[in-house]
């Protein structure tokens, strides 16, 4: 009799091959393979749909059938390691970029990066925004704590605009002759309101400095002469993304 470990190994192998698990039986032995297919289909379909939930715009861009095929290869190379499936898929953007057959869609990797970041933001820790009293005390030597959902992506492609074009009622995607690199802010306002917003590169640079816990003065200097601090602070305050202010020393 096989040990349980031998059985489980054989079952797992059978899911991805023509084999059958050790000891599998049915009243009519000719039906064993068809019955086992229920498990094969459940595993393949369940994981493919879980990946599609993380990357819905990628699925819309390539089509359902193509996505299912891509997902199958991705699952073979990068299966989930945890039952917390929202932690699965960090490798998907680079994996998409590595696929020769998708090289005609050079923005796909960046769209996937946006969707991964949105998933992080959606589940990020809750935090109350700083009070207006506290915000009034903001000075050049302070650093700012941003909401845990805040992420800034520098994209070589217009993936922010293309992502937006895939949303219900979204604008038309830019024509290829107008393609430019984009910088995108991804965050969450409160518990529910997702932010995916194109921002000027100098604000992106400023936010990256703030995320690295630099002082306002340093972040402004790094952001360059075109940077508008008021515009950046309005963006953050309007979206409740400043959660604390500290005196500039690293905590």
């Amino acid at each position: 009799m096989p040990s349980h470990l031998e059985f489980a190994r054989s079952f797992q192998t059978a899911l991805g091959s023509d084999h059958l698990p050790l000891g599998a039986q049915a009243g009519d032995p000719t039906e064993i393979a068809q019955r086992f297919n229920v498990y094969r289909n459940n595993v393949a379909y369940g994981l493919s749909r879980a990946l599609a939930r993380q990357f819905p715009a990628v699925e819309r861009l390539v089509g359902t059938d193509c996505f299912a095929g891509v997902a199958q290869i991705f699952i073979e190379h990068h299966p989930p390691r945890s039952p917390n499936l929202t932690d699965w898929g960090v490798e998907f953007p680079e994996f998409l970029a590595s696929l020769e057959t998708l090289s005609t869609l050079p923005y796909l990797r960046d769209v996937a990066r946006i969707e991964w970041a949105r998933s992080r933001a959606y589940h990020a820790c809750d935090a109350k925004p700083s009070s207006s009293e506290r915000l009034k005390s903001l000075a050049q030597h302070h650093s700012i704590c941003l909401h845990a959902s805040v992420q800034v992506l520098n994209l070589a492609t217009p993936a922010g605009s293309i992502w937006a074009s895939q949303q219900p009622g979204g604008p038309a995607p830019p024509a290829p002759e107008n393609w430019l690199p984009e910088t995108v802010l991804i965050a969450r306002r409160g518990v529910a309101s997702m932010i995916t917003e194109l921002i000027p590169p100098e604000i992106a640079c400023f936010l990256q400095q703030i995320l690295a816990r630099q002082t306002l003065a340093t972040a402004c200097a790094k952001a360059g002469p075109d940077f508008d601090l008021t515009e950046a602070l309005v963006l953050l305050i309007r979206n409740d993304l400043i959660t604390d202010i500290n005196d500039g020393r690293m905590k």
């Binding site: 489980a8 190994r9 079952f11 797992q12 899911l15 498990y39 459940n42 595993v43 369940g46 994981l47 879980a50 299966p79 989930p80 390691r81 945890s82 039952p83 499936l85 699965w88």
Partner: peptide, 10 residues
Amino acid sequence: ASHGGTWMHD
């Protein structure tokens, strides 16, 4: 649902 560190989601 998992074996050898791989999660099979069924």
